[in-house]
């Protein structure tokens, strides 16, 4: 399954943080620098494995922990409709 950001939503990178608006709820989300990196990676549809491998090569982290964190990140992003499958 490939993951892609929900490009229908308004968003901006401001001062290194990604801000995403949900116009339906008027809710504003922010993503930290790691979230921003993931947001960049999912500008086109990619697999979860691709993202994990990519981040593993860029950050000094344990792979299992990274996998858990990324899965949790996408679970939350999914709940808030910030990604499109």
């Amino acid at each position: 399954m490939k993951i892609k950001r929900n490009n229908k939503l308004p968003w901006r990178v401001i001062d290194d943080t990604v801000y995403i608006v949900n116009p339906a709820s008027s809710y504003l989300y922010s993503l930290n620098p790691l979230g921003r990196r993931i947001w960049d990676l999912i500008s086109k549809p990619v697999t979860l494995e691709f993202i994990i491998d990519k981040l593993y090569s860029e950050y000094d982290v344990d792979k299992e922990t990274l996998k858990d964190d990324i899965e949790e990140f996408f679970r939350i992003m999914g709940t808030h409709h910030l990604i499109a499958n």
Binding site: I14, D15, Y19, L28, S30
Partner: peptide, 18 residues
């Protein structure tokens, strides 16, 4: 909260948020 944070950052840095 995020809204205020964004408003403050953009105000200080003169970023035309609106």
């Amino acid at each position: 909260m995020i809204q205020e944070e964004l408003f403050e950052i953009t105000y200080k840095k003169n970023i035309p948020l609106i």
